[in-house]
């Protein structure tokens, strides 16, 4: 099972006129079970792209198929929205209900599940994001701290038990602790329920340390689609489209310049330290 994107092209209209395409002939497949990191400069089409994964924007040219369900069919769109959960930027701004539990239940209610199932899912989702249902269920979402609000909003998507979880900069504006909590949550989700994660992020360090695949978008087209090691070894190319590289890669580049033969594909902290450990053992 997978998400197949075939020749997807999309242009916004303004004042009755079509603008330059925001997405230009995208073709690739997102395999189940991966942690896909999407990177690209602001305006590269990342946010527009993820709105195609659950049919918020219509497929005008090309197709998007989620587990074989074609998103250009209106009747299949509802089914896909239960499969693909989307967490937008600053998701806490979507909280609306009187209590956290009610808000988390919004998705399952729209799926017309029975009460028992809804309650079970609300409890499960709140546990997942680390909000103890006993303590938080009946509190107003507007009384929570920033990080808690963010996690409550994510619980509101997880309660739909999505097979594919799409997140648009889920750590934006959070403090370092909040960032680590969200990343840990995503890792846990993937390990426990096999949920496929698709995450847009500006933090190359986070992408390098967590993603299994990286998609680089540039002017609405696929620039690279590969493992983080392979993507980040093209440092110059990335820098030419206004992207940075992970900190570890930067150190490797500086070391390379000084004649140290450390492979340029090292982008994870662990791999970097491991390389030095072996180096030390040799010496």
């Amino acid at each position: 099972m997978s998400i197949e994107i075939n020749h997807l092209t999309f242009a916004y209209t303004q004042g009755g006129k079509k603008l330059e395409p925001t997405l230009n002939d995208l073709t690739f497949t997102i395999e189940e079970g991966h942690f896909l990191g999407i990177i690209g400069h602001t305006g590269s089409g990342k946010s527009t792209f993820i709105k195609h994964l659950n049919g918020l924007l219509p497929c005008e040219k090309g197709t998007v198929k989620v587990d074989g369900l074609d998103l250009s069919e209106k009747s299949e769109r509802k089914k896909v929205r239960a499969l693909v959960g989307v967490v937008f930027q600053y998701p806490e701004y979507q909280l609306f209900a009187e209590t956290v539990a009610e808000d988390v239940a919004f998705g399952p209610k729209n799926m017309k599940l029975d009460e028992e199932e809804i309650n079970a899912r609300v409890t499960e989702a709140m546990h997942l994001v680390g909000l103890d249902p006993d303590r938080f269920s009946s509190r107003s979402p507007f009384d929570l701290s920033g990080g808690e609000r963010r996690r409550a909003a994510i619980a509101g998507v997880l309660s739909m038990r999505p097979k594919y979880l799409v997140l648009d900069e889920p750590m934006a504006g959070l403090d370092p602790l909040g960032r680590r909590e969200i990343l840990a949550l995503l890792e846990k989700l993937r390990a426990e329920s096999g949920c496929t994660i698709i995450m847009i992020s500006h933090s190359m360090d986070d992408i390098a340390n967590h993603a299994t695949q990286v998609l680089v978008l540039e002017k609405g087209a696929v620039c690279m689609y590969d493992t983080p090691e392979n993507v980040f070894s093209h440092a110059e190319e990335l820098q030419s489209i206004g992207l940075s590289v992970p900190n570890v890669t930067q150190i490797c580049i500086e070391l390379n310049k000084r004649g140290v033969a450390i492979p340029s594909s090292i982008c994870k902290e662990d791999a970097f330290i491991e390389w030095f450990r072996e180096e030390k053992a040799h010496a």
Binding site: D175, P176, N247, I251, I273
Partner: peptide, 19 residues
């Protein structure tokens, strides 16, 4: 609950290796 710059973290790990 503050995270030092990535370079500082790597630096400290290397130091613990004996560099």
């Amino acid at each position: 609950n503050l995270v030092p710059p990535e370079t500082v973290i790597v630096r400290d790990s290397l130091k613990s290796l004996g560099y």
